[in-house]
Design a protein around this nucleic acid. Structure first.
Lengths: 344, 344
DNA sequence: AAAATCTTTTAAAATTATATAATAAAAGAC
DNA sequence: GTCTTTTATTATATAATTTTAAAAGATTTT
């Protein structure tokens, strides 16, 4: 591929009979060093020639790239390419919106080892990173030593130096369980993903237990399932749960899991909500596409992405944060996946 | 943010008592100009000091950025942030995999006007772009005049200069319709997205008509629906279709549309497949989560992304292509959303 | 009125990290 | 002593920004 001639700041300078410095000043609005006449002339030329500053050069001198890495870590057991589940996609949508608004760019990359992450960071002078997927703790400590701004999503890591965007997880777990209990359910299965950082799920689990406790329902160890989140795994969990004739309800801590479980249950002839009721978590679009539609705990995933990006950029730019941690609200969304056994 | 000291090629050179040129040669494997002894020494130092080449500087001199833009265009009526539908996400997954493998980086960006696209191109010296979402033709002509490699996905644009990755759309439309006809359906609704570049949908539509024709079933104008792809729009289309007591089957040219329509139908008490059968297109994960599971036309979306990326990079790197156009295969995937009325 | 000082405006030079072409300096062969 | 090969260096280029310097013009001081 032949190299194309690009219009540089020098070309504009030459044309205007000024130095590149002056052009640069005009571009950045430092008019106090330039006469109004020159400003006008340069602006006209920039417009005319279609000059567009080159970020590669600018980033090199300024030593800030305006690039934020969206890093996706794949645990080998997960699906082959980067994260595609609707939660992460919706989250990324919010992030993109805000980053773009603030003049930042997103570099998307899948990374499997800590070293790959560090390399990527340095390769492009990344100013911040957003981690989606499942990571070992060493990734975070690596980022910490690299002194790069990190905002954690849904993390209960006990480290005050990190900025965190989270959710009312305990409340969500409590609300969902109480919703079921209020409708007469007592033998409620709790399903959560089998992943490393337990924080979020632990909190939702605590909410679940709290609701049981408050209503004097004994907690049963055999009602807790930790499971893979892949669709086939969830479907087979559904098939497995169809054998549990004792239970009347399931609380799945992710809509995609709930949808998969429903699919497996229905395959085995279980009627929802007649035989088993189910509640999800997230309120993704999928919850409108299952039959019956899924009653779930709503969170605003896109807003989470926006808030996340906002805090990351503020941090990057040294804008002081009001809070090191933001907790977003949840609420129940009632649809048709829960049967009323008896009013309590 | 204070600037961090980065290790440069000069640091390595100084430490090794050689010039930066020599270090550069070692990095690029140009050993013919360097003694084996020096090579070893420099390699050891690079390892030791953790030197990582800076792409900003490298791209600047080489005038190729190794960045491919993934450009998402939003038509104002669509949802607020970048494209989140499972098709595009799965496609992007494949693209990322291949680009990453070949040493390229992805920059993700939402763009609304042609000028924004051109600016982005020049801002980062993008080497190629991947367009997802819905674009006006002027975007493509802009890319063409910018002399930037473009590979079109699912495009029937009649321009030999573009490289294209497509699908057996006609066959897909034909197969789905024939599948229904073979099971005794005659009054079949054809649903497709209401979007600008008609190519793909036109082909699938032709396949639909061909199958009808072959079986001497009259084509009815009132059985063709063009509709928005948003989930709420599809659900209300489902509600609307529930009033059509004459039809026995629906062929939706996208799984997400099929899923939405099913949701609307079921809401209105229509039983699937007992009252109405439905066939989708794409074979996304959603087709396993509907009740009943969706019979659909399978395409390998991730593979599409991989092929797409491969052709784009080959083109960027000047590797001659065997074909300017690649057509990927489709096949029927039988699940439970179609009822056999009578064997034909 | 000349010299000194202060603004305002403009420009040159240095810097960012890397790559490459041209050049130079050894070392060895003939 | 010349020629070739091996090895390493210098200079230049990439496209911008920043620091420093210097003109030009205006104002004040002597």
């Amino acid at each position: 591929m032949k190299k194309k001639k690009v219009i540089t700041i020098k070309d504009i300078a030459k044309e205007a009979n000024v130095s590149p410095t002056t052009v640069s000043n005009v571009i950045h609005g430092n008019y106090q060093h330039v006469s109004m006449e020159t400003v006008k002339k340069i602006q006209r030329l920039i417009e005319e020639k279609g000059y567009i500053p080159n970020m590669l050069a600018r980033s090199l001198v300024k030593r800030n790239s305006k690039i934020v890495g969206v890093i996706n870590c794949l645990i080998p057991t997960e699906r082959g390419s980067f994260i595609q589940d609707p939660f992460h996609t919706a989250f990324l949508g919010g992030v993109e919106k805000e980053l773009s608004r603030r003049g930042y760019f997103i570099m998307l990359r899948t990374v499997n080892k800590k070293d790959e992450l560090i390399t990527l960071l340095r390769t492009w002078n990344l100013e911040g990173v957003i981690m989606t997927g499942v990571f070992e703790d060493e990734f975070y400590s690596a980022l910490k030593t690299a002194e790069i701004p990190v905002v954690l999503i849904d993390s209960y890591v006990d480290d005050e130096s990190f900025i965190k965007v989270g959710l009312e997880d305990f409340k969500g777990g409590y609300l969902a369980t109480k919703y079921l209990i209020d409708r007469g359910h007592e033998n409620i299965v709790f399903v959560s993903p089998k992943i490393k950082p337990k924080g979020v799920l632990e909190e939702r689990f605590k909410g679940y237990k709290k609701a049981l406790e408050e209503h004097n329902i004994p907690f049963r160890r055999e009602n807790v399932y930790e499971h893979g989140t892949r669709i086939d795994e969830c479907i087979s969990l559904g098939r497995e749960l169809s054998k549990r004739k004792d239970i009347t309800a399931i609380f799945a801590t992710a809509d995609i899991m709930a949808a998969g479980i429903m699919s497996g249950l229905i395959e085995k002839g279980v009627r929802i909500p007649d035989d088993i009721s189910i509640v999800g978590f997230d309120d993704l679009e999928i919850s409108l596409l299952t039959t019956p539609r899924l009653t779930t705990v709503h969170q605003d995933v896109e807003m989470k992405g926006i808030i996340f990006a906002r805090m990351l950029i503020d941090y990057i730019e040294g804008i002081p944060l009001e809070n090191k941690k933001v907790i977003l609200p949840v609420r129940m969304v009632e649809r048709e996946s829960v049967r009323v056994l008896k009013k309590r």
